[in-house]
């Protein structure tokens, strides 16, 4: 038995993820998150937050996601929602809070403090790097 033959067998015997169903669920749940965001934005604008309304809307989603993570609810929603709750800012908040909760047992410095970024860290590193590159390009073409 060669590795190629075995890879072929493994592929034949491994059930696949239900692509269309998962995509549809992600589309719906992602849409719901964005709708909540839009509702919050309109609400804060009406309350007179002006240009800060968008920041408040993002903040509210982060708080909501963090609270749901703390109440052990978020992962049960995300299990079905997939990218629908992972891609928006809610996913970012969940990855920080869940890691902070998990590693609190190793102390507040090397546990909670350090491990908090174990999942979100790469997003920050490459997010910031991409924005620097974007800024440089913008500087030259303007």
């Amino acid at each position: 038995m060669t590795k190629q033959e075995y890879a072929q067998w493994t592929q034949e015997e491994s059930p696949r993820s239900k692509g269309p169903v998962n995509i549809f669920k992600a589309f719906l749940s992602g849409g719901v998150v964005c709708t909540i965001g839009q509702l919050l934005l309109s609400l804060y604008e009406r309350l007179g937050a002006g240009e800060n309304a968008a920041i408040f809307a993002s903040l509210s989603l982060v708080v909501l996601s963090a609270v749901l993570t703390g109440l052990n609810v978020y992962d049960n929603i995300a299990k079905h929602a997939g990218a629908g709750t992972l891609v928006p800012i809610t996913g970012f908040a969940n990855s920080m809070v869940s890691a902070a909760m998990e590693f609190k047992t190793e102390g507040y410095i090397l546990g909670l403090g350090a491990k908090m970024f174990s999942i979100a860290g790469p997003v920050i590193v490459y997010g910031v790097s991409a924005s620097v590159i974007y800024g440089i390009i913008l500087y030259f073409i303007q």
Binding site: A78, L86, M101
Partner: peptide, 17 residues
């Protein structure tokens, strides 16, 4: 889970295998 994969409350999806 915490040693080999993700924090318990992390909202990831598990594959069918």
């Amino acid at each position: 889970e915490r040693q080999f994969r993700f924090p318990l409350e992390y909202g990831g999806q598990r594959t069918p295998t």
